[in-house]
Amino acid sequence: MTSALHQSRLEAVIQAVTGTGAQTVLDLGCGAGDLILRLAPLARITRLTGLDIDLNSLRTLRERLADIPPKTRAKVQLAQASMTAAHPNLRGYDCACLVETIEHLPLGDLNRLERALFADMRPGHVIVTTPNAEFNPVLGVPAHRFRHPGHHFEWGRARFKGWAGGVAARNGYSVTCHDIGGTHPTLGGASQMAVFQRQG
């Protein structure tokens, strides 16, 4: 079942994807396909590619795809692959999405992700969401813990903006950051989103 927070996050990402005008979309760390299943029915989307390292998640997504109309299903292709490796056949996409995935990478892998995605595959737009650590007290998460045992880090808004700005500057993108998933007057949103746009 999709939580209200996850639904809110997905709606924000879909709105951002729609705002880019993208027709071809990469979903890196697609999991069981919550984003793909919401994007596939959109008439503007012509091709969706989901990548995940976890084979069981991809199997679940394939089962879920069997329940949608064949014409919609034909837009989707899946691959078991790492998001930190460059995939030359995936160059030229309009948009790439990473929804609550970067925090599952060891910090040392972020440089590899940057090189693979922003320097090599270079989609027109990249949309990244990640938890906002400042919001954790609102969710009852103790200061010494992360929201999920699979997280390697959780950033506050300043740290996330600093990372996003550095990635954008090094790779010829502009970036804007947004609070998503509900907002608190001082702590921001439960999650945060960066929308990168390739320049030139």
Rank of each mutant, 00 (worst) to 15 (best):
Q192K: 10
L113Y: 02
A74Y: 02
A74K: 13
K75Y: 08
V99D: 04
I102M: 09
A86M: 08
L51V: 06
F160L: 10
R159C: 08
I102A: 04
L39V: 09
G181A: 05
H152Q: 14
R64G: 09
K161W: 01
R73A: 15
A79W: 14
L39T: 01
H151K: 11
A143Y: 09
L187C: 02
E154T: 08
I127R: 06
F153Y: 12
T101W: 05
Q77K: 15
R38V: 00
I36S: 09
A190Y: 10
A66L: 12
G50K: 05
N56L: 13
V76G: 03
R91C: 13
V17N: 00
G108A: 15
P137E: 11
V99L: 13
R59F: 07
P185H: 11
H148Y: 12
A85V: 09
V17Q: 00
R9L: 08
F196T: 00
A116L: 09
E134D: 12
R147M: 07
P131Y: 05
L90W: 11
H87T: 02
V126G: 01
N171C: 03
Q197G: 03
N56T: 15
G150V: 05
V126S: 01
L26R: 05
H151M: 11
A86N: 09
G92V: 12
K75R: 13
C177K: 01
V138P: 04
F196H: 00
L58A: 02
A169N: 03
A81M: 07
D67K: 06
A86I: 00
G29K: 04
I45M: 07
I102L: 14
L37F: 11
G29Q: 07
A81E: 08
V25P: 11
L98I: 13
L90M: 14
A4K: 11
V76S: 06
A22G: 06
P88T: 02
E154F: 08
C95L: 11
P131G: 08
E154P: 11
V195K: 04
E11V: 09
D109M: 11
S82N: 10
R91I: 09
Q77T: 15
A119M: 13
E100Y: 13
A190Q: 15
L107N: 12
L61T: 12
L105S: 05
L117S: 01
A164G: 02
E11W: 03
V138I: 14
N89V: 12
H125D: 00
M1T: 14
I36W: 11
